[in-house]
Design a protein around this nucleic acid. Structure first.
Lengths: 318, 318
DNA sequence: TTCTATGATAGCTAAATACTATCACATAAT
DNA sequence: ATTATGTGATAGTATTTAGCTATCATAGAA
């Protein structure tokens, strides 16, 4: 029992034309059709909207009250039509990208300019979250695609591999390690090892490293962010293995912390681009992943490796 | 090929419910109906609006772009519904009243308060125009009802008589007439008689008076308004017969012009309320006319007379 | 008096909207 | 591994709506 857009348009057309026949001509419908539709609209609203005479028709005072609403509706409908027309062959809408805070700020600035060059019309809205929250959010429609780390917890998402990002040993300048050219695995035994909060998947890797080399994982001093970890390292609370892109961006140029050449097995986290299997934009996301790999290969080859293959959501486990 | 309000409402409902079945339940329609309507909407716009999966559905980035427009449309539709509901049994809308500038400002202030007491919900928008333009405009829908003077030029309008408004002789204080207690018709012979612009029906009456008493109608000094006439009278350019309500309002309390007791035949213009015969508000206008007569009888009886009967658009010719 | 223009009504058809029944598929529960 | 449950989609059908033509009643113009 609500009006239709056609009925509203018909009413305004009668008002403008000054008669049913004149309006019917403009609308390219038969005059009895117009009469019927206006009558139906008046019945739906329970208000007489037009005053009819042999000289034609015009809006009643009540009818005029509806005009601003009707004009707004028709204007918004025209906007929808225009937007739909513009959408043809273009990337309409704002795409929501989720990234881990331990990676996004140190990686996206490297690749976003190239993505924008390739897709000038693409609008992205970036939001950070822990990897498992990213994956759950992707599933629930909070993101359109995400950069996340392996191993993923949500199965059956579509995945494109990006790179492996090693972890780099970092200590204070006055730490014993800092006077050495390199650090041996045996050197880690008994060392205090700092780690990020447990909700970050990176924590798992840091815990694995601590266990493997019998270092003491300090649980009372978990960093809420990589920067917080850096500050704690600098004050001599302990040492830590930090992601290579973070080290490149925030450690290398500093005096209060030092990255070390750890001579031992390499630990790295796999980084992938993921989206929902049902997404109609799979090709777009694949292309974005290609760009991310290409830029990483060109600009970040000393910091990440790109030789991994993904065969399932468990893929990439080191 | 444009969207319907129902389809737009269906789309938002799926977005909010997170699934077709959930939305169908809320909308109280069958799920296949919803699926079909969304598919039709997507075909009309040529844009994929929803991403479907077994976990449910959510808007695509493109789909999200349409949401502000759709929300505005649905909000305006709700406003139309509310306005329609409020219209039940009330005087919805703004009624446009047309009045002659030689009468409206001196008459409406007398009656509008009483009209508002009787119809608190009535909104009137008053606009001035020359009588023949008022009548043409009424026919063309520019006014809903008008106060106009006789004789009317447009036939077959619905008319309610208000009153007869005499013309009163006015001259400068230093005019010879001002020293007399009364002015005889013979005194007018050869006198310079000022008149308002020809487009006002009042001009016709002023011309008739000049002819009947052999006064000289000054055509080079036509006043564009009654106030302009008053100024010219005050500077001694000539004398004039002015409407009684104007004289009451603007002459009686002044020192620079004087109204005279003209001992001769009375000249008056008939004043009526008119509206289109097809108007659905005839009863309202009749009641307004009754109020205007009652207020005139009570407050203006020394200035206008109310004994006239209208039998046609020529009625009231004196 | 006749012609022309107005809005309204009647009867009919095509298109749109809505239904039920059922399908294919994927995930959860057993 | 099997069964149950939930998802969106399809097929066939019924109902409603929108549109048509033909014609009406009425009023004003010619």
């Amino acid at each position: 029992m609500e009006p239709t857009i056609k009925q509203l348009r018909y009413l305004l057309s009668v008002s403008e034309a000054g008669s049913f026949r004149g309006a019917a001509d403009r609308l390219e419908i038969a005059q009895p059709t117009l009469t019927a539709q206006i009558n139906t609209l008046e019945n739906k609203l329970g208000v007489t909207l037009l005053e009819r005479s042999r000289q034609g028709a015009q809006l009643t005072p009540a009818g005029r009250s509806f005009v601003p609403f009707i004009e707004t509706i028709l204007d918004q409908v025209a906007s929808i039509r225009r937007l739909a027309d513009e959408a043809d062959g273009s990337l309409i809408g704002t795409y929501r990208l989720g990234v881990p805070p331990t990676l996004g700020p140190y990686f996206l600035p490297e690749v976003v300019p190239t993505i924008h060059s390739s897709f000038p019309d693409l609008k992205m809205f970036v939001r950070e979250n822990a990897p498992r929250d990213l994956e759950v959010g992707l599933l629930h429609g909070e993101y359109d695609f995400i950069v996340t780390t392996l191993p993923m917890e949500i199965p059956n998402l579509s995945v494109e591999p990006l790179f492996n990002e090693p972890l780099v040993l970092v200590c204070a300048p006055d730490h014993a390690f800092a006077q050495q050219d390199e650090v041996q695995p045996a050197d880690l035994k008994g060392e205090s090892l700092l780690a990020i909060e447990e909700k970050h998947r990176l924590f798992d890797l840091m815990q694995t490293i601590a266990a493997q080399f019998s270092a003491r994982l300090l649980r009372d001093y978990e960093g809420t962010s990589l920067d917080t970890l850096r500050h704690m390292i600098g004050t001599g609370l302990g040492i830590a293995f930090l992601p290579a892109l973070y080290v490149k961006s925030e450690i290398t140029s500093r005096q209060d912390v030092k990255s070390m050449n750890f001579v031992g097995p390499s630990f790295a986290r796999g980084v992938v681009l993921a989206w929902r299997p049902g997404s109609r934009r799979a090709e777009l996301y694949k292309k974005i992943a290609e760009i991310m790999r290409a830029v990483s290969r060109k600009n970040l080859s000393g910091h990440v490796t790109l030789d991994m293959q993904i065969t399932g959501y468990d893929g990439g486990r080191l």
